[in-house]
Design a protein around this nucleic acid. Structure first.
Length: 271
DNA sequence: AAATCTCCCTGTAGGC
DNA sequence: TGCCTACAGGGAGATT
């Protein structure tokens, strides 16, 4: 499941290949994603130049003079640059062909992702307008976590995964950040001190920034490769390690469900 | 308003 | 080996 670091790594991987390039053709093989892929993209996109590729939360935004192509990778999606003529595999649902020969290929076995077209401006777009701040921006800090959490009884893990509070903190990094911050994921958000939120916010930033750096360092081949940045599993402290020993105190890590999501933590190190 | 539930989909894992 | 079932998970939208 692409988390924010993987989406950002994808953005950095594809942008050099499609920036300032003119779209020649769009091929939609499977329009049934999370929402139907709009038919109009096949007729509207050709002739348009991709001016830049941005990321907002886990959405990738391909800006053209006529509108914005919005792409979400869901939990199994990926984007990569392939060569013209490379035959599509089973789950290669959308190709965007550029004049010059590059092909941006969208792959998504589980089809939880999305490819949408927003003519003109995306300002006020329903999918984007209620999103909280970017975790790596100055708009996100511990003061905000503290302020937003007052009176909230929901578990702190659910709270930091709420896109209204801060975007891009998915299940993996929520688990990791809470472990590093020494915060029990089950604890009510409203019962955590300002001091601890200041620390938690800094750790969220650090964990995400480090993952992006490593995504960059180990950038998989976006040209002709699999286009998947990978998850750097070897350095995950808790995610996927339920039942194994805590790397800090050797106690057995607990695994529970919080908000229908797998949650792993150390009852000794996280209070 | 806040919290919880449902649903979309298919690869993978586990049971037999 | 193969069949069957359960499950995971982002996140919008519905429901409580």
């Amino acid at each position: 499941m692409p988390e924010l670091p993987e989406v950002e790594t994808t953005r950095r991987g594809i942008e050099p290949h499609i920036r300032d390039a003119e779209i020649a053709e769009v091929v939609v093989r499977q329009p049934r994603l999370r929402w139907p892929v709009p038919e109009e993209i096949s007729s509207v996109l050709p002739g348009l130049v991709v001016e830049r590729v941005e990321r907002r939360a886990k959405y990738l935004l391909l800006y053209t003079p006529a509108g914005v192509l919005i792409i979400h990778l869901g939990m199994s999606g990926s984007l990569r640059i392939v060569k013209t003529g490379e035959s599509p595999a089973k789950h290669d649902h959308v190709d965007i062909l550029f004049r010059g020969g590059q092909v941006l290929r969208y792959t998504d076995p589980r089809r939880f992702g999305a490819v949408l077209w927003q003519p003109e401006s995306i300002v006020g777009h329903p999918l984007l307008k209620n999103l909280g701040p970017e975790p790596l921006s100055e708009d996100f800090d511990g003061e905000r976590l503290f302020a937003c959490s007052r009176q909230k009884k929901q578990p702190v893990k659910t709270f930091i995964m709420d896109n209204h509070v801060v975007v891009g903190v998915g299940n993996i990094y929520a688990n990791e950040a809470l472990f590093e911050a020494g915060v029990d994921p089950r604890k009510a958000a409203g019962r955590i001190s300002r001091q601890r939120y200041l620390r938690l916010a800094e750790i969220i930033k650090r964990v995400l920034a480090r993952a992006i750096e490593q995504g960059g360092a180990t950038l998989k081949d976006f040209v002709g490769g699999d286009g998947k940045p990978g998850y750097f599993q070897q350095q995950l402290q808790v995610y996927g390690r339920g039942g194994e020993k805590c790397r800090g105190c050797q106690k057995i890590l607990k695994e529970v469900k919080i908000g229908q999501r797998a949650t792993v933590f150390c009852s000794q190190c996280q209070r």
